[in-house]
């Protein structure tokens, strides 16, 4: 849980945004986006069908049901070839 230091009475508590970083291939785009709970939700947010991309975290493949953590760095590689 990341948030600002303890708020004083009457002061509104603000939360630091929870984000993840996504490297999209083959376009080689680097995106910072609000954290979603699962890989599937990240893919949906990006408009990517689960069976058209592999998702990698720390060198390992992730299935769509896996949890995404704050500050995660994901590699999403679209695998549909053209032509």
């Amino acid at each position: 849980m990341e948030h600002t230091p303890e708020a004083t009475p009457g002061e509104r508590r603000t939360f630091a945004p929870r984000t993840i970083t996504v490297r999209l291939q083959p376009k080689e785009q680097l995106l910072t986006m609000p954290r979603e709970k699962t890989v599937l939700q990240v893919l949906r947010k990006l408009g990517i069908r689960p069976t058209t991309a592999i998702v990698v975290r720390d060198g390992g493949l992730l299935t769509p049901d896996r949890e995404v953590l704050p500050d995660d760095e994901l590699l999403i590689r679209i695998v549909t070839s053209s032509g």
């Binding site: 291939q25 083959p26 590689r77 695998v79 549909t80 070839s81 053209s82 032509g83």
Partner: peptide
Amino acid sequence: YAPCPYSGGASFT
């Protein structure tokens, strides 16, 4: 994995 620079309009895609 970079797409062919000429294949943008391929109907198979």
